[in-house]
Design a protein around this nucleic acid. Structure first.
Lengths: 192, 192
DNA sequence: GATTTTTCTTAACCACGATTAAGTTTTTTT
DNA sequence: AAAAAAACTTAATCGTGGTTAAGAAAAATC
């Protein structure tokens, strides 16, 4: 599991044996069960989680009580609420396990110290966040430029593995429409 | 103008006199006129721009020929297409001056060298990108959780300075609706 | 100051996707 | 295996915000 993380980091920056040992001593390993929460609204987010195995989601609670999906994360992805994590402010988000998960986490209290010991991690995370940012802007573009139906087909074509992994109603919320409308789309596909 | 940039950097990391001189020798200064382009669709984005004075916008061209606003940027903001800038791939974006601008830019070819000479800039940009990412996720939340009319009022309340600075039709596109609908909202306000 | 271009407004019509509500299927729990 | 909970489907109704088109107002240019 830790090897996954090392391999992921090495895609972006060098990390020698000694540094790997330092890193291992700084991170925490945790397992959580499906439906357990890592973070709840109103709490400060104290960790950044790397998914070794499993699937997480983050969502907000809307005024009407519905859950609005914010993000999915699977193997080799980092997930946190950067806003809360960095500024130590109460989060708007819930982070919950969609499947049983094995996680590696970096605590906010040790992050700075870790970055001093292994400076290239600063670069690693700059690049990780940059990728997340680019992905978020792409998603905004899809929201603006594609119809709900087109967004579904686009997601279907580009991330087929997700479709079987997450419940349809979460996907519908992630794509910005209702589960009822997703059923309509699927009925249309079955017809043709 | 350069002092603005130094001051902005010093909000996040230390930067001594010597480093300021190094930085100055690495960046480029440019002035552009309203409506001029810094980047056009299909080209690789070779710079990251810091706005000393003025206002930039980025947009994509939709299938129907309309322009979809992606971002605004004003004084003390960085703007680039990180996807194109980092991966050296053709951009989907246009970046254009909304007002006459005075800019400081970092070229992609010298960025790595600059980060080696002033390592804390790696941290500075990690934090900058993190903030942009958080803002982008907030905007997604507004798209999901607020109606077009609510989004307008929210923007109005939180960024009143923008309202006078950018044309209404750009704002409408940024908020994800048509200029006609914005007129409708404004007429409703005038009534009451 | 006159002309052109850009930006904003108004109004009629209409389509997409939300809402509501009931029922079915699948999964989980006991 | 039975019961309960979670997830998905179907269909009728309705409202928001898009589209179209024409005109008015404001700003830029000559």
């Amino acid at each position: 599991m830790f090897e996954n993380l090392v391999r992921h980091i090495q895609k972006f920056v060098a990390l020698n044996e000694e540094e790997q040992i330092i890193l291992r001593s700084y991170v925490k390993f945790e397992s959580i069960k499906k439906k357990q929460y890592l973070l709840e609204e109103g709490h400060v987010c104290h960790a950044n989680w790397f998914i070794g195995k499993g699937c997480l989601r983050s969502y907000t609670l809307k005024e009407n009580g519905n859950k609005q999906m914010v993000q999915f994360a699977i193997e080799n992805w980092w997930l946190t609420d950067y806003f809360s994590f960095e500024q130590k402010k109460p989060s708007q988000l819930f982070i919950q396990a969609v499947e049983d998960c094995e996680l590696i986490s970096i605590d906010d209290r040790i992050q700075d110290e870790l970055f001093i010991k292994i400076p290239q991690l600063e670069r690693y995370f700059r690049l990780i966040v940059q990728k997340s940012y680019a992905a978020s802007l792409m998603r905004l573009q899809y929201m603006f430029n594609l119809s709900p139906e087109e967004r579904f087909h686009h997601f279907n074509n580009n991330f087929p593995s997700f479709i079987q992994r997450v419940p349809q109603y979460m996907l519908a919320s992630y794509l910005g429409f209702t589960p009822e409308f997703l059923s309509k789309i699927r009925a249309k596909i079955a017809d043709s």
